[in-house]
């Protein structure tokens, strides 16, 4: 396996490989999001209790799942960065953090806009909402720490440690609704059981989820490319590319 993976640890190879992925990710994301948003907004039925507000589900839940999934992948990158001192893993952390922060913000904002009409409040300091807010702060911390050093390779270790340590928050977010009394309800789709959701609502959710996931993938690849360039700016292939783009 290592033999097979080894060439991808070469920054130049990784740069071109992610470059090839981006257009495909974009096409898949666009298709899925157009279909998913249409189904979610206009085609899927209203909920028997919550009426039309259930349409917020198709953004809120994919964003929340991605906010945690992306953090997990960032923590894995942090682990690889610390153990193998892989420079590409540092680039991956810096690429993932802003995307994850954006999806966390989306989950929080859509959650507030859903909570106001259904619960009667925009915000409550219950365990689920608070732990998701802490996730946002963790992302912002990783971003800020990464920008604090002029030389990108210098602060990399601190960033990796923060990304890795923050992973303890993930089980807290997920199990908060079971461990404590919360206003937020339990899991609908992220559990080892059939989703507590009618098929006519589950299908648009799945489509939207993969749409957002591929969009996140494409944006992460782009940021990763930028990070690889910035961290290898002394290499001849990067210099050549920089000078070739001059008009």
């Amino acid at each position: 396996m290592w033999k097979w993976l080894h060439p991808y640890a070469n920054p130049e190879v990784a740069y071109h490989f992610t470059g090839k992925l981006i257009p495909w990710f974009n096409i898949i994301a666009a298709l899925l999001l157009v279909v998913g948003m249409f189904m979610g907004l206009a085609y899927s039925p209203a909920d028997y209790q919550q009426g039309e507000t259930v349409r917020i589900f198709y953004i809120h839940v994919p964003a929340a799942i991605l906010s945690m999934g992306l953090y997990f992948s960032m923590a894995i990158a942090g682990f690889c960065a610390l153990v193998w001192q892989l420079k590409l893993a540092h680039a991956a952390i810096a690429a993932i953090a802003p995307i994850g922060a954006a999806f966390t913000a989306i989950a929080l904002i859509t959650g507030a806009a859903w909570g106001k009409p259904m619960w009667g409040t925009w915000w409550i300091w219950d365990a689920r909402l608070t732990s998701e807010l802490i996730l946002l702060f963790l992302y912002l911390g990783v971003i800020a720490l990464g920008n604090a050093f002029d030389d990108k390779n210098q602060g990399a270790k601190a960033v990796s440690v923060l990304a890795l340590v923050g992973v303890v928050n993930l089980p807290i977010i997920h199990y908060s609704v079971e461990w404590w009394n919360t206003l937020h309800q339990g899991a609908t789709v992220t559990k080892f059981a059939a989703p507590s959701m009618a098929m006519s609502m589950y299908i648009p959710f799945v489509i939207c989820f993969f749409g957002f996931a591929f969009l996140a993938g494409s944006l992460i690849c782009k940021r990763f490319q930028g990070q690889v360039l910035a961290r290898n700016s002394l290499r001849p292939w990067v210099k050549k590319m920089a000078l070739a783009e001059e008009h």
Binding site: P98, A102, K222, L229, E245, E246
Partner: peptide
């Protein structure tokens, strides 16, 4: 949010190349 993030992300490689140049 996604539009802002998308535009910013898509420009990243170009921005970095410009800095290097």
């Amino acid at each position: 949010i996604l539009l802002a993030l998308g535009i910013n992300s898509m420009r990243q490689p170009k921005v970095q190349l410009e800095k290097i140049r």
